[in-house]
Simulated scan of single mutants.
Amino acid sequence: MAAFGHTFPFYADSKTTFPMDTTSAIIIIIFLTVLVTFIIILPGIRGKMRLFWLLRVVTSLFIGAVILAVNFSSEWSVGQVSTNTSYKAFSSAWISADIGLQVGLRGVNITITGTPVQQLNETINYNEEFTWRLGKNYAEEYAKALEKGLPDPVLYLAEKFTPRSPCGLHHQYRVAGYYASATLWVAFLCWLLANVMFSMPVLVYGGHMLLATGIFQLLALLFYSVGTSLTPPCPLRLGTAVLHTHRGPAFWITLIIGVMCVLLGLAMVVAHRMQPHRVKAFFNQNVEEDHMLEWSPEEEGLPSPHYRSMAESPEPQDIALSEATSSKPGCEEKHPGEPDCAL
């Protein structure tokens, strides 16, 4: 024990924590980079179109960033409690700590922070992740955590989500996460199609795809809510307190953005029917070019012939009948064998 600096065996040093999820940070940086690029070219747009264009870009990028960020977020169901609990195996020492649980679509994240951080001659600050996404085995990750010797609260909460746990949390959260994640990917594809159609003279279909984007986000929330409520909640007792989970920020942000996409899509469809010229002006599209693309009633079927009126037709030329008939016999008399006379 002296070789480990007065710490118990099999316990490594505490893991340094990043202030936020690295995947969410990467997504935010990418979309902010795209936004800055669009802002740089903003001075090249004249008049009121500059404000309309900036509003469209900011709104669209915000919706796309939220759809991707919540898909990789670990805050769909969260819970936190301050308690006094045991810290390590083979020890009767207790600590005072804040313990947090974040459940995402691909796994769980468990944090434990001592209050104060320095207790028992060491720093108590852990942030551990256990995933069940494709290519990962939750049971193997939990076995590695046992070998590593993580603190008791972390192992206790991680054990509740193992496949063999009687709580059944692993099955319901894993299935709900799979369906919700797949539906969010469909919503992201609808968002991409909406942006493509908004850049073309098919604005009404862009409104339909924006409406579909919101509907698929709401369906993801429905799948997650139904999947996680199939079994009664399992009590999570940590020392002298019980940890309760509730819907996290990712759930409510998805709900807000989903409702916003539905309202914007409906408003787009209604405005296109009532005020199509203003909608085209908002999207900086030329109305004259759009009229050229519209089909007239005659063009819906087979092409119909167009006849000239008497005023448009050229003046007829008067040719004497005697001149037209007298040329043929003369040709036959002079040159009866030449092919030109047959004409």
Results as ranks from 00 to 15, higher is better:
S73V: 02
S92I: 02
A93R: 00
G64M: 02
S86N: 13
N71T: 14
S60P: 04
S82P: 00
Y87I: 04
V66T: 12
F72L: 09
V78N: 03
A89P: 03
Q80A: 13
A69S: 11
V70D: 05
A89N: 09
A69P: 00
L61F: 12
Y87R: 00
L61A: 03
F62P: 11
N84M: 07
I63W: 03
G64E: 02
I63H: 07
I67F: 08
S82V: 15
T85W: 00
N84T: 14
G79Y: 05
S86Q: 13
L68D: 04
T83Q: 03
S74H: 07
S74Y: 11
Q80S: 14
V78L: 02
T59P: 09
W76M: 05
I63Y: 05
S77G: 02
K88T: 12
S73K: 00
F62G: 13
L61S: 09
S74G: 11
W94I: 14
L68R: 06
F72R: 08
S91E: 07
A93Y: 02
A65P: 06
S77N: 09
A89E: 10
S77P: 01
F72C: 11
E75Q: 07
Y87A: 02
S82F: 12
S82L: 14
T83Y: 05
E75W: 00
F90R: 13
N71F: 06
T85I: 08
F62A: 15
T59L: 09
T59S: 13
S77W: 04
I63N: 08
A89F: 01
S86F: 12
T59A: 14
W76C: 04
W94M: 11
Q80F: 09
K88P: 01
A65M: 14
S92K: 02
V70H: 01
V70W: 00
W76V: 05
E75H: 05
V66G: 00
F72N: 10
T83V: 12
Y87F: 11
T85C: 11
S74D: 10
F72S: 13
A89Y: 04
V66A: 05
S91G: 06
Q80N: 10
F90H: 12
N71S: 15
N71R: 13
W76A: 03
L68A: 13
K88G: 10
A93G: 07
S82G: 14
W94G: 15
I63M: 10
L68M: 12
L61H: 06
N84W: 01
F90Y: 10
I67A: 08
A65V: 08
K88E: 15
G79E: 02
V66C: 06
F62W: 10
T59R: 12
S86H: 11
N71Q: 12
I63C: 11
S74I: 09
N84F: 08
A69E: 07
S86M: 12
A89G: 07
S60Y: 08
I63P: 05
G64L: 06
S92N: 09
F72A: 14
S60E: 03
K88S: 12
S74A: 15
F62Y: 10
W76Y: 01
N84I: 13
F62I: 14
